[in-house]
Design a protein around this nucleic acid. Structure first.
Lengths: 212, 212
DNA sequence: GTCTATACTACGATAGAC
DNA sequence: GTCTATCGTAGTATAGAC
């Protein structure tokens, strides 16, 4: 399918060079077709860009939400286990070579949000983060929604740093970031940190109650 | 000074649009000068880009390392306090409006490192991260250098998420990210998380020794 | 639907006036 | 040093053959 090849190439090129940096000529050539087919199928460069965002969403959708195994957990321990599964799955996804193009595209959108970010957020991204907030509240017994959201943001930051600050990680760790051993260590560190933070949230809650 | 105006504008434009997206015409016009002065002073677009990176480094230099107050601490508690000061100072810096252009420029370089990243890393960025590794080792009594580096990466991720995944943070938190109250909450959350992670690192170390 | 042709615009670099 | 003028190139978009 020529449209799939076009979208695949578009995600890669837009991710690497950005909306303005990538050229329709280059994308079409790399996809093995004429530039005018971009106009035909997507109306132009901007249309292709939005279609690339939708393509990422469609590819994400069938992998991400599985860590939750259907229903939301009821007990704190179940919720904590689900949080760990979610982060572990996300690290696998984000650190794999296949997600490199997606990650570049998404981080770019984070900094200069266009209409494409709305589409990304409406997909698994926003959904899973919302679920994580619920899970954190269940795991810690917190009624404080804003606090749980803040915790999710910081926990999530630990994970995305490997993409968003990739060059810095490579320098500081001194190892190639696609090394499976490093990813395993990274995963273990994040799991331990997550437990530590969740415990801390629980103790914050109980000490608050103690003061009240 | 026209060169300062040119560099200031270059950091902003390159940060927003990237090396290929920004135009020398646009930068020169926004700086109130002719495009050919870029050629005259910096040899061309690429020279201006590298000069913009150096400009960022020069502006960072006089603010960042102060949290360490001169010498490296000797005791774990002193080290922990220095870690907290470093992160607090960094959050102030990274969340302020003045750093917006820098952050965009730097995150772009992280994803597509060019020669400019070498210059950034050679500045306060690499230096302070190296110091943080030492501080974490002192604070936790860890001999494991690789483990400390990994911990610094994840701790650092918590902080940079507010820039690197800014759009996501805005959606998830539902508050404007330049709200001082939010920044204060963010700082408190990160301080608490950092303590939790450092405690965890200490307990990991002692349980290892217990097993040995 | 996919291609080649071409029109039009904007870019970076350079030359030369002042 | 800073400006204007201009050249060659590369970009998007479009028209039209097949």
């Amino acid at each position: 399918m020529i449209q799939d090849r076009l979208l695949e190439t578009a995600v890669r090129e837009f991710g690497q060079k950005g909306l303005e940096g990538a050229s329709t000529r280059g994308i079409a050539a790399a996809a093995g077709t004429a530039m005018s087919s971009i106009t035909y199928h997507y109306g132009g460069k901007e249309g292709l860009y939005l279609a690339a965002a939708d393509y990422i969403v469609s590819q994400m959708d069938d992998i991400a939400p599985r860590a939750l195994e259907g229903a939301l957990p009821g007990t704190p321990d179940e919720a904590r286990a689900a949080i760990h599964r979610t982060f572990a799955a996300f690290i696998d996804k984000i650190s794999g070579p296949r997600s490199e193009a997606w990650a570049l595209f998404i981080v770019r959108e984070q900094m200069n949000p266009t209409g494409a970010f709305d589409r990304l957020w409406a997909g698994p991204m926003g959904r899973n983060l919302g679920i994580l907030v619920t899970l954190v509240r269940t795991a810690t017994g917190a009624s404080d929604d804003a606090g749980a959201r803040l915790a999710v943001v910081t926990l999530f930051g630990q994970v995305i740093v490997i993409r968003a600050a990739r060059a810095m990680c490579a320098r500081l760790l001194g190892r190639p970031l696609d090394d499976p051993d490093l990813i395993a260590d990274f995963k273990a560190r994040i799991a331990a940190n997550t437990d530590a933070v969740l415990d801390r949230l629980i103790s914050e809650r109980t000490s608050e109650r103690g003061q009240a």
